[in-house]
């Protein structure tokens, strides 16, 4: 998409206040979850159908301080080359908004869960009804020229929303040589300004749509149509040019 909108996430500015999590639940009317302390401050510990974004808490080694505590706000990455959209068998169940976000229509989703197998970031979660529930980049807000709830709430500027290109330029001016998501998967709608290697923040280097999904999309899918059509055409040609099997004389006297 030529000029898509994006969320730029700057972990260096994040204080781990989790206001983005609260804002997301408030806007999307999602209930809180019962959580348990399991040795990490991330709460809830994982995304779910009721938790569309969360802050990851990373304890990283540091040379001059006891440790570096990194806060990484995560959600659907709104991939330009989105595995979930490729594999979904229902038109419109996952769709692209005019801002370039990857939004969902639960009324159309049939709960086949194929999208979970095609997402490089392990984002799709399913509700009790079996339907996909994930961040839509607040499509219902952005359509009305309002920024996503989480970015609107963020008090430190760790989450900002705007034109993808402008956000990248801004991050570069602030001294980040690389922006995670600038070129990955054709450009991501959730980008990170990382000071160190993405792996340290819990993000994979060079994310890719699973090869099997690409293979299926590019070759297997068209091949099935070509096979059935090709063989059907071949039988007609056979009938016309070679002719059917002749009855042996006297078969049906």
């Amino acid at each position: 998409m030529a000029n898509r909108k994006a969320i730029l996430i700057s972990p260096e500015l994040c204080t781990g206040c989790r206001a983005c999590q609260v804002a997301c639940k408030a806007w999307n009317q999602l209930p809180a979850e019962k959580t348990k302390f399991s040795g990490n401050f991330a709460s809830p510990a994982d995304l779910s159908s009721n938790t569309l974004n969360k802050v990851r808490f990373v304890e990283a080694p540091s040379e001059d301080k006891p440790l570096r505590w990194l806060f990484v706000s995560q959600r659907c990455m709104h991939c330009e080359d989105a595995g979930c959209m490729k594999i979904c068998p229902v038109p419109g169940a996952i769709y692209r908004t005019k801002d370039g976000a990857v939004a969902t229509d639960p009324d159309k989703c049939i709960g086949c869960k194929l999208c979970s197998a095609a997402c490089p970031f392990d984002v799709p979660r399913y509700g009790k009804d079996g339907k996909l529930s994930k961040c839509t980049m607040c499509a219902d807000r952005t359509e009305n020229s309002m920024p996503p709830a989480c970015t609107k709430t963020c008090p430190t500027g760790a989450l900002t929303f705007g034109d993808s290109k402008e956000l990248i330029a801004k991050a570069k001016r602030a001294g980040y040589t690389k922006v995670y998501g600038e070129n990955d998967l054709g450009g991501l709608g959730a980008m990170y300004a990382f000071k160190d290697a993405p792996l340290l923040y819990g993000m994979k280097e060079n994310p890719k749509v699973p090869e099997m999904v690409v293979f299926w999309h590019k070759y297997l899918k068209p091949l099935s149509l070509i096979s059935i059509g090709g063989v059907a055409a071949a039988t007609l040609l056979h009938y016309a040019f070679v002719g059917p099997h002749k009855d042996k004389e006297g078969d049906d006297e």
């Binding site: 095609a118 099997m212 299926w216």
Partner: peptide, 8 residues
């Protein structure tokens, strides 16, 4: 995912 490919 493997099953999806095998099915196809």
């Amino acid at each position: 995912l493997l099953s999806f490919i095998a099915h196809n």
